[in-house]
Design a protein around this nucleic acid. Structure first.
Lengths: 212, 212
DNA sequence: CCAACATACGGACCGTCAGTCCGTTTAGCA
DNA sequence: TGCTAAACGGACTGACGGTCCGTATGTTGG
């Protein structure tokens, strides 16, 4: 009883829908103005097909986001410096943040859609927990393996809330899509200015990190 | 043709609605599960009344938030140290962040409702721009008056994106309602732990702030 | 090449919800 | 007490996310 490969028209439609949704999102001001009917119509596909493929609105946005994000993720997980895992921690943290910010700058609307469309908070999304885990682990390295028995009492598998985890959250919060959008839009900042400010900010956080 | 004072039943209803909405929000898991019909029913008031008073969903949430936030705002604008304007900058920044976080810890659901219900981004909301302005100005003082004749450079009303403004955004992002909720909920942190982590994080940012 | 089956398709349909409209009620005033 | 402007309430509308099911089509075994 082997699982058959998916039908040809199915995969074709999947691509069509993804492309249509992408175009719609990047063209529209707010992601909320794009309805599922719009996507279906733009893709020349029935609504049923849309929901069958992606489950719900969230699923569509997630699928699109993952497709666009895949190469970045590869680079972080297996690539060379400065994003890859063999980079020196401090440099890598800065590179990770800059890469994430750059992606959001280039895909503002999609990123906003992802963060605001979630039925729950964006913090439950697997892509967030992945970024957070990666960043936290790198911060842990940066801080040095020495100070690592303190956070948890020897027998406490549940750390209350370790400093690296919080720092990772706080740094990621600084590149949230709606903030980025606001800086670019209402505050009229250039992408380069935002990147420069983030880099300076992150450097300040890191430089103070080791020394209490 | 003086504007008459509002009718007695109108103000009574306003309070009733606000109280009902507050109760509903704090009881419900996600603010999105509270419909306007729910509020109207709980307040024992017609839907028309609700919308006449508050304009739309956003208006209701904003009104409620402002009512709950008012005393804090007073304390920041005119109160004594550590929140008031006469506090030493470093101490005041820490106090502001802690006060804001404490408020969000105590009013999780309302705060989340405020941030996620906005038709636009939360960054356009006046309460955000107020917090951001206050924080930025205090950071400016902290950094020293030296580097500061530029803001109102006679001919440059548009600064590109100054470091204090960005830092203020980044620090405020660390206390966003959904992050706070996540830390408390999914990560099981205690309110005190979150406050401690935020204080430590902010201190790191500030201590590095002066020295490039 | 054909038949039969699994899979996918489409769009009518449903429930919910924000927001509107308008006929009715009532507070406030002279 | 009677008049009027203000407020009230709830039926109604339009839009949207999501479901259902009869129909069409790619795929596979004979």
């Amino acid at each position: 009883m082997p699982d058959r490969r998916p039908r040809a028209d199915a995969v074709r439609n999947r691509e069509t829908v993804l492309a249509a949704a992408d175009a719609l999102f990047t063209d529209s001001e707010s992601a909320r103005t794009v309805s599922m009917d719009d996507v279906a119509a733009a893709a020349g596909v029935g609504k049923g097909t849309l929901f069958r493929r992606f489950g719900d609105r969230d699923g569509l946005v997630r699928a699109l986001f993952e497709a666009r994000t895949d190469s970045l993720r590869q680079a972080v997980e297996h690539g060379p410096a400065p994003l890859g895992p063999r980079t020196a921690p401090r440099r890598r943290v800065l590179a990770l943040l800059d890469a994430l910010l750059t992606f959001k700058l280039a895909n503002r609307h999609l990123s906003r859609a992802l963060e605001e469309t979630g039925s729950g908070s964006p913090y439950e999304a697997t892509h967030y927990t992945w970024w957070h885990g990666t960043l936290r682990d790198t911060l842990l390295l940066l801080r040095g393996p020495a100070s690592r028995e303190d956070t948890g009492a020897p027998e406490a598998p549940e750390q209350p809330l370790d400093a690296c985890a919080f720092t990772a959250h706080a740094l990621l919060a600084a590149v949230r899509a709606d903030l980025v959008e606001h800086l670019l839009g209402a505050e009229g900042a250039s992408p380069e200015a935002v990147r420069a400010q983030l880099a300076a900010y992150a450097a300040r956080v890191l430089d103070a990190d080791g020394a209490p």
